[in-house]
Nucleic acid binder design. Structure first.
Length: 528
RNA sequence: GCGCCCUUAGCUCAGUGGAUUAGAGCAUCUGACUACGGAUCAGAAGGUCGGGGGUUCGAAUCCCUCAGGGCGCGCCA
């Protein structure tokens, strides 16, 4: 469909012919449908320098535009906007374009380079919980989006398998295996004895802590599999000791100093609130030291950019991470923190208590089992990262219009239903070039096509803003327009040519829905 | 105390590339089943975009400020 690329040069020519100063016009999608498909405010921006009224300028531009291919109508509106209405028959081309592009529809090469997306990164000392679930969904969808616009993406999971916490975990497991209480500040959950029993049943081990750690990591990857999240790299902190950390400290050079028996990084030089300890006075390196070595490791692997997906409780790390990058001398723009708010669990409007102590905690595994992967992922992804999510176990499985997951998936099932009916009726066109897509001329069809045509813009914006919810909201808008089309237009009918044209429109709608939901990691079911 | 985020319709939330009459779902009210899945559709009603200043021809959107709410500020991990 015609867009800014075609309209901009035409408008510039008109500016020239109208004797107006040259200016690169910007175009936007008007909010109001009556304002057409594209709009430019170029006349408004010229009003001041030219000293004429915006509407007057707009009219002058239009007078010199002449006719524009694919545009049906151009008018001046409001304070001086020039609105372009795309020709109805031009919309058929959109359908053809979508069907031809298939799975590539909406993807682009607007970005390039290698990006590392680190997310979840929960330590394998216990099962994943709700917060990790949102993190998994957001991180994975973000990775999908980045791939869709041309990035070469690596999904990475980092975990601490060294240091004090690891020893504490090991001690806890060992205590439990002897029938004793874990240390006060150790790990107490029921899963500890589960894992211990499991190991003993399988013939024991000579390193219980290690074996338990591996088992829990295995459980976590199992949960992630169920979530359809697959990492390219699982990176254990141990790989950074001692060489990586030593090299990192050396590379940090003058920014490192000793005081009070400890070794510090002068992060305050780079905007942090206080300096951070690298090596404690007892000689033990902190996790912060490992974080430094880890960043250096990532960059050494050739990434152009590092993205850290973090829960809002970690926002204090932003300055710290940026300070590390600065201290190493990396361009700060090459690291990016993508934050998201937390998740509150409800059941039928009542909060579900979450307590590690009492074991009332709902693990993410249990949640997935109860609501399913599609509902979980979709619910985590349809909200802006900036708002906390109230995740209601009942509302999320509710099967009606109130639940957007089902609303969207139902449109997918309906599409599949049409396909089945069409095939039974012998309607199964193989070549879209033979179809007369200009027959798609009802309002419902035209509006559906218009929504379809904006998909690539939505993907680009969602990727740029790291905003997966834009894809979810788009899918809802698409479903809405499809349902209306479904209600008003019979696809499989007596008029063969019309049926064929509508068949292709349905194919295009399905393709777009599949592509959009695919970015979210949600399925487009054929039956429900 | 400092920092980050949030405050938009009765409720839950979009919209924050400045711009033409601020959107959706739920709830409320009125309609649509002799056609491909009514798990749907059409319509009505509902908002001084937390308050107050400012920038701009134009602000939900940018800046300042105040008020509420969430989170974070370790030689913890």
């Amino acid at each position: 469909m015609i867009g800014p690329e075609q309209l901009a040069p035409v408008v510039r020519d008109a500016l020239d012919r109208a004797g107006l100063p040259d200016r690169a016009p910007t175009f936007e999608r008007p909010r109001q449908r009556e304002h057409g498909d594209w709009s430019t405010n170029v006349a408004l921006t010229l009003a001041k320098p030219v000293g004429r009224s915006p509407r007057d300028i707009a009219q002058a531009i239009i007078d010199h535009l002449g006719t524009v291919d694919g545009v049906h109508e151009i008018d001046v509106a409001g304070p001086g906007f020039i609105n372009f209405h795309v020709a109805r028959d031009a919309l058929g081309d959109v359908v053809r374009q979508i069907v031809t592009a298939g799975a590539e529809w909406g993807r682009s090469q607007r970005a390039s380079g290698a990006v590392n997306v680190e997310f979840v990164s929960a330590n394998p000392t216990g099962p994943l919980h709700m917060g990790h679930g949102r993190q998994a969904a957001v991180g994975d969808a973000l990775a999908n989006l980045l791939e869709a616009v041309g990035w070469d993406v690596t999904r990475e999971y980092y975990f601490n398998d060294a240091g004090r916490q690891m020893r504490l975990f090991s001690d806890s497991v060992t205590a439990v295996s002897r029938g004793e209480e874990p240390p006060e500040d150790g790990y107490h959950g029921a899963y500890i004895s589960d894992v211990v029993d499991e190991i003993e049943r399988d013939g024991g081990t000579d390193d219980l802590g290690e074996a338990a750690y591996e088992r829990i990591l295995g459980r976590i990857t199992g949960t992630l599999d169920a979530m359809r999240v697959h990492f390219d790299v699982f990176f254990g902190e141990r790989a950074l000791h001692p060489d990586g950390v030593a090299k990192a400290l050396a590379a940090l050079g003058d920014h490192v100093y000793t005081a009070d028996g400890a070794t510090w990084l002068r992060t305050t030089s780079f905007g942090d609130d206080k300096d951070r300890v690298l090596i404690r006075s007892d000689g033990e390196p902190t996790y912060f030291a490992a974080d430094c070595a880890y960043m250096a490791d990532k960059f050494s692997r050739g990434f152009d950019r590092l993205i850290y997906v973090l829960g809002s409780d970690h926002h204090g790390y932003i300055k710290r991470l940026e300070a590390i990058a600065d201290a190493f001398g990396y361009d700060r723009d090459r690291i990016e923190i993508v934050m998201h708010q937390f998740v509150n669990l409800f059941r039928g409007g009542a909060p579900v208590r979450m307590s590690k102590r009492t074991g009332e905690m709902v693990t993410f595994d249990e949640l997935l089992e109860e609501v399913g992967t599609d509902a979980a992922r979709y619910t985590f992804l349809r909200y802006s990262r900036d708002v906390p999510i109230d995740f209601d176990l009942e509302a999320v499985v509710q099967a009606d219009r109130a639940n957007p997951v089902y609303y969207v998936q139902y449109s997918s099932a309906r599409i599949a239903g049409i396909m089945r009916t069409a095939h039974e009726a012998g309607l199964q066109p193989s070549n879209i070039d033979d179809a007369d897509l200009a027959l798609l001329d009802t309002d419902a069809e035209q509006e559906l096509i218009r929504v379809l045509s904006t998909y690539p813009e939505v993907v680009a914006l969602a990727a740029d803003e790291r905003a997966p919810q834009r894809i979810a909201r788009y899918a809802e808008r698409l479903a809405e327009h499809f349902h209306r089309f479904y209600t008003e237009c019979q696809v499989v009918g007596d008029d063969r040519d019309l049926s064929t044209a509508r068949y292709w429109l349905v194919v295009a709608a399905r393709q777009t829905l599949v592509n959009a939901l695919g970015l979210l990691g949600v399925t487009a079911p054929e039956r429900m």
